[in-house]
């Protein structure tokens, strides 16, 4: 309790938020749904900071699909999970439906998930495979958009400046015949911090044998969620085969750095990750969700 921030500033417009950030950004901690931040503040004894509550800013809760798909930073996980406008981004909907329990999903936001930059953030692998760009706004600098892959700098570190607010995320158009999915490994079927989370988007070749395009991203096995470009490169244009999938798994293992933690051992993560990759590719090819939760 003694470490909790002493002040709470609630803003009701983006302009107000930007003005606060411009003036006091360094000492302000931005609070949206608070499902990560409030746990951290209660448990970790973080330095007392002031909270800037942005949950009530109107206009940041929309999902727009005119040409580009845009997701407001305050869109909640549950909103995304249930949004039929995101049907082309099945992996994102699947991931959002598996962030914590429904209480977390009802208030936790996509913007929060992105800025929090947890190594285990479920929504980040799907955003990465859909070449998401993060829109940041500030009073002095206007607006800029950064590729998510560049926005994430490390474990819980991002390119956000103290005076900036993440206002939304845009997704690239999904490849026309592409199919995507998010496969999450947890010991239970829900309310797990991912042991491994992998998003895949595969465009099968018109010949039915080759992989025209493959995009892969993974979380919980490296300091921050990331694309697996090396594996994608290996598979692109190749004919699908057991040998190719084996090799893909091996290359993947060279580019991730799983650790032992209370949720799973390094050994388990290393064993399961290549299997999840295979499973995800197979699900994309068969165009099924592949969700490991029982009812799917």
């Amino acid at each position: 309790m003694s470490q909790m921030p002493k002040q709470f500033i609630s803003v009701s417009s983006q302009e107000e938020a930007l003005a606060q950030l411009d003036a006091h950004g360094e000492e302000l901690q931005i609070l949206a749904g608070g499902t990560d931040l409030m746990v951290q503040l209660q448990q970790s004894g973080q330095r007392a900071q002031r909270l800037l509550h942005i949950e009530n800013i109107p206009g940041l809760r929309n999902i727009t699909c005119n040409g580009v798909t845009g997701i407001g930073a305050l869109c909640t996980h549950r909103q995304i999970a249930e949004s039929t406008s995101l049907d082309n981004y099945r992996s994102l909907r699947q991931a959002a439906a598996q962030v914590g329990g429904w209480q977390t999903q009802m208030v936790g936001t996509i913007g929060g998930n992105v800025v929090n930059a947890s190594p285990a953030a479920d929504t980040l692998p799907p955003l990465l495979i859909h070449n998401a760009r993060v829109t940041l706004v500030s009073q002095s600098g206007g607006s800029r958009a950064v590729e998510l892959g560049r926005f994430l700098l490390g474990r819980r570190q991002t390119d956000r400046r103290h005076d900036e607010l993440v206002s939304g995320i845009t997704l690239a158009r999904r490849p026309e015949r592409g199919r995507d999915c998010y496969i999450k490994v947890g010991r239970r079927s829900a309310t797990e911090v991912a042991i491994v989370g992998l998003a895949a988007c595969v465009t099968p070749g018109r010949d039915g044998r080759t992989l025209e395009d493959v995009r892969l991203a993974i979380c919980s096995v490296c300091p921050m969620p990331k694309r697996l470009y090396e594996v994608e490169h290996l598979m692109q244009g190749e004919e699908i085969s057991e040998a190719l999938l084996e090799e893909a798994g091996e290359i993947m293992l060279k580019h991730i750095d799983p650790i032992d933690d209370v949720r799973a051992s390094k050994r388990y993560r290393s064993m399961v990750a290549p299997r999840v990759l295979k499973h995800a590719i197979a699900c994309c090819i068969e165009n099924v969700s592949g969700d490991l939760r029982p009812w799917n």
């Binding site: 010991r187 239970r188 079927s189 829900a190 309310t191 911090v193 209370v262 939760r293 029982p294 009812w295």
Partner: peptide, 15 residues
């Protein structure tokens, strides 16, 4: 090792 309910997994209705 387990020191919270996040780490100590209790059975959920779904399973």
């Amino acid at each position: 090792l387990e020191r919270s309910l996040e780490a100590y997994r209790l059975p959920l209705a779904v399973d």
